[in-house]
Design a protein around this nucleic acid. Sequence first.
DNA 1: GCCAACGTTGGC
DNA 2: GCCAACGTTGGC
Length: 161
Amino acid sequence: MPYWLMKSEPDEFSIDDLARAPRRTAPWTGVRNYQARNFMRDAMRVGDGVLFYHSSCAEPGIAGIAEVAREAYPDETQFDPKSEYYDPATTREAPRWLNVDVRFVAKTRLVPLAELRAHRELAGMRILQRGNRLSITPVTPREWTFITGRLLAPAAKARRR
DNA sequence: GCCAACGTTGGC
DNA sequence: GCCAACGTTGGC
């Protein structure tokens, strides 16, 4: 199953906001980058795993786990002149921007960027590459397993001893 | 606030 | 289609 990392500025929409959302589900609106949009449109499927990443904040890093709850459909904010994501160039007939819905799975400890960088196993992650700015990036099954199984479950590891 | 990196725009 | 200028992202 495919896995993803999705960035959000916690001041705008945090893992806590997702946990408090009705049915713990929210539309991932505001993506205005074609590569990120295409991931949603072409590859994201219901049930895909999502690492919820907090960016542009005091403590950037992975803050929780979510899952794709609905496949891509037109992003309403592109039609709303009052929205900061308004796009006057798009139309209802041919919407340019899409969003998926994301459902809360778990809040985790904050795994800081520096910690991700410290592990060889994660060296290939898109988020760690120089100049990476994509707000949605694929995560390999290996990376997913390493992060969710090892970085996020120290208790389970301790029990095994 | 700085700055590197990258995407987009628009003139030609 | 090229490419310089400009805007944005995001860590520090």
